[in-house]
């Protein structure tokens, strides 16, 4: 997952695309260290643990869980990984004329 996500973020730099991580590893300090160690640059939400507020609200029980949302804010794909995720994002970017 991670290597592909990093590649994707690099590849789509400058495009109207955002990768948003909802992290369940712990508090801000814990996550900060992981982000630094792993060279993760994209936006994060600190959701504390696997019973975090966002994970609970969005009924997440397996990690990673992925939603791909188009430029209009509509959920278009769920649980696509790696190449499938990249293809989905590219398709939606093309759709948005980007």
């Amino acid at each position: 997952m991670l290597p592909h996500e990093k590649e994707l973020v690099k590849l789509l730099d400058g495009k109207p695309f955002a990768l948003l991580g909802i992290n369940s590893d712990g508090d801000a300090a814990t996550v900060k260290k992981i982000l630094a160690d792993q060279n993760i640059t994209w936006r994060q939400a600190i959701d504390e643990d696997t019973s975090g507020a966002l994970a609970t609200k969005w009924n997440v029980s397996g990690w990673p869980t992925i939603f791909v949302i188009d430029a209009k804010g509509v959920i278009r794909y769920r649980d696509v990984r790696d190449q499938d995720m990249e293809d989905a994002v590219k398709k939606l970017l093309a759709e948005a004329g980007a």
């Binding site: 695309f17 955002a18 948003l20 590893d25 936006r43 997440v60 990690w63 992925i66 804010g73 994002v89």
Partner: peptide, 27 residues
Amino acid sequence: ATDENGVKWKLSDYRGKVVVVDFWGYW
């Protein structure tokens, strides 16, 4: 949501972009 630096953000801040919401953990 709140990021690792305490900065608040909203999903709707990203309207107009293609967005991947990725629930993840490094375990």
